[in-house]
Structure formats: C-alpha cells, structure tokens
Design a protein around this nucleic acid. Structure first.
Lengths: 195, 195
DNA sequence: TCGATTCTGTTGGATAAGCAACACTGGAGC
DNA sequence: GCTCCAGTGTTGCTTATCCAACAGAATCGA
C-alpha cells in the first residue's frame, strides 16, 4: 500500500545478499572509515563473491546510499512513523529519530568522511520530505505540501546536525533539544491551529 | 592436515545455507522441542527453500546429527583441543568441555527428547574417541589406542551425563567435578607414568 | 619517471538455491 | 469407515551466486 515499499516480496537470495553486504559494509566502515574501504574488503567480510556485489551495486557509493536509506527507513518503521498521521507527538518522535540517527551514524564512521555525511544528508532529507509531505496531504491542509515539507525537512535536518555536532558538556538530550525546537518546527509547518 | 576437516573449502553458498539451517534448527527446537518441530518450521525460520533443505539433509534427524557434531566440534576447536597432544591439563579441559556441552545442549531442547539425547551421545562419544585415539597414537604408548580410547570416551561421557543430570543443590561445578574424576580417567588410560 | 602491486569492473560458464507443482503419508475429527 | 488437512519427499525449470580470468585504472615506492 505505502509508496515506501518497492521491495517486499523479493527472492530470498537477493535479500540475503544485500543484508550480508550491508552488515559487512557497516562493520568495515566502522573499522577503517569509508574512504579507505574497498569493495574487496566488503565482499570478503560478507562472504559474498565480488562479481555478485557488482550485480547489486555499481560501486561502494551506491552501497552507502542503500545502507543509509535502509537504516533510516528501519528507524522510522521501528517507531511506526511511516504508517501514521500528523500529530505533535509524532513530529516530536520524528525529530528525535533524526537526531539519534545522525549522531549514531556519524560515530560509526571512523575516520569521519565528507562523502558519508553528504550521502546521509541527501537520503535522510529525502525521506523526511516524503514522509512530511504525506502527512500534510492526509491532513487536507491549505498549505502547499511540497513547499512546506521541503522547508520542514531542511529545518529538521539542520537542527539535528547542529545538535549532533555539539560536543560540549552542556549538550542536552535529544528529547530535551527536540522539546525546545518543536514549537518552531510546528509553527513553521503552519499546521498548528492559528490563534 | 587434520582428519577432522572434511569441509574446509566449501562453496560459500552451501556453507551459508547450512549455517542458516543449523541456527534456525536450534532456535525452533528450543521453542517447540525436537519432536514437534517440522522441516517447514526450520526452513521457514531460516528463510531457505524447503527443497534446498532436502538437497542437504535427508530429514530433520540428519540435521540434528549435523548440528550436534558441528556444535561439539566448535567447542573443541575453541579450546584448540583438536590440535594438541595429550596432557593432564588437556584431558581436564576435555572433560569440562563435555560436561558443559551436554548440560548446555540438553537445556536447549524443550521439551527434552530421547532422540536428541541419543544423537548427542553417539556424536559426542564418536568425536571423543577419535580425539583420544589420536592422542594415544601420538604418544607412542604401548596400550592399544582403539581399546583405550573407546573405554575412555565411554567413561567420560557417562560421568558427564551423570553430572549433568544431577539437579541437586550440591552439584559441584564442572571444574570441581572434573578434578574429582580426573585421576580415575587418567589411570584408566594407563597413560600416567607407572610407579 | 617507471615498474610493481592492488583494486576495479566485466565476462562466460558452472553450480546452488528458489519455486511451483506433484503424489504420498499420517493423523484429527466426524 | 470417511474426508480433510498438514507435512513430506521429489521433480523440472528458472534464477542468483560463484569462480576464474581478463584488461584497464589507481596507488605506491624506488
């Protein structure tokens, strides 16, 4: 039903291979960082033939894309944010999810890589935008879904980035931070009841 | 080199399939017990086609055989008991290994099954016998390796079974129990220096 | 700069795994 | 007795993965 399921009934072998590659990819990236990792490293760790890798992904950048997209999607699904309607509580959960995802993912790439960060930004914002646009459309609000969802997804990502880059001792928890910025985002959405 | 490695360079696909089946088997057996578990349960859990199961094993009993053999072998390899020579310390480690393996394996089958116990006895004793025979032969002792290893493997298994079936509060630890019976087994082997 | 090594993509043919269908068995319930 | 149902093995065909080999790009040390 949902547009976010292009892959549901897939050949078990394909599913297995992709999972193996994804897991191996995360493992080796957390050890060597993204730049210095090779396709051979990944397939070796995964126990998958190198030719098979290229049957699924053109290169390691495509696998990075896939992994990030998949990872963030699973976080959304875990909290059932992909199958719900708009509410302040869900918006709050969404922002917290983004904060934790960015923070967690970044720490899993040693040393940090601009490529990695860039792909993460692209993929996460894309899914954010799609999800929020869906929320708005189901609301039947009079705001332009495309415009509002774009602005909101960028805003959320930017705030989450800033929060995750804050290495000071006084950085608040993701929940606390989210509560601070929640009114701003919600107002930005123009979805709260106007006074 | 070692005779205990009939499978070293195996097609990655078959290695993968067997691991999946073995893991799924252990999972479902610990949930439903061995008797009531079906091939469909196993393959379903493993995400492996049912026809593929039969390409590897004639039935679930064969998989039970394989799993037990594999499991015990891995315990031996973990302690490098498969690539060492005889010594009292290694004999001690071996007995402890058997005690813990039996105790652990039995508790992973709910409800307990006579089939399960029987297969475990056969497989464990067979590997014990092979290993001890190897030890004796490398010693160049004058005892008959076949005879001595058979008696010793039976003795060890019997003692370990008795220990693992002892559900009383005063059951000693596997290490303590082993220290108690170690002189007996070693003497049985006639491998200690005669007075 | 050059040679050597390592990694990258790609190919053709071999093999394992998936799938849908089939006949068969054995037990549960009527 | 009977049917019904769920599990078992087995089959022919399709598809994904493996493997060895290859040529070209990139990296590195002398």
């Amino acid at each position: 039903m949902s547009s976010t399921f292009p892959e549901e009934k897939l050949d078990p072998r394909v599913k297995r291979t992709r999972q193996l590659l994804e897991q191996a990819f995360l493992d080796v990236v957390s050890q060597k960082g993204f730049q210095s990792v090779s396709v051979q490293d990944i397939t070796g760790k995964a126990g998958v033939n190198r030719a098979t890798f290229y049957a699924h992904f053109p290169d390691k950048y495509a696998l990075l894309d896939y992994s990030v997209r998949q990872g963030f999607r699973q976080e959304l699904e875990k909290r059932t944010l992909n199958v719900c309607t708009f509410s302040i509580e869900n918006l709050r959960a969404l922002i917290i999810t983004v904060c934790e995802f960015i923070s967690n993912a970044s720490s899993h790439c040693n040393p940090p890589s601009p490529q990695f960060e860039s792909v993460m930004e692209t993929q996460v914002k894309a899914q954010l935008q799609e999800l929020i646009q869906n929320w708005i459309q189901k609301l039947g609000s009079d705001v332009d879904p495309k415009i509002a969802s774009t602005a909101t997804s960028w805003a959320i990502y930017g705030l989450a980035m800033q929060w995750s880059h804050d290495k000071s001792k006084k950085r608040p928890s993701a929940e606390k931070f989210t509560d601070d910025v929640l009114p701003l985002i919600a107002g930005n959405l123009s979805l709260m009841q106007p006074a």
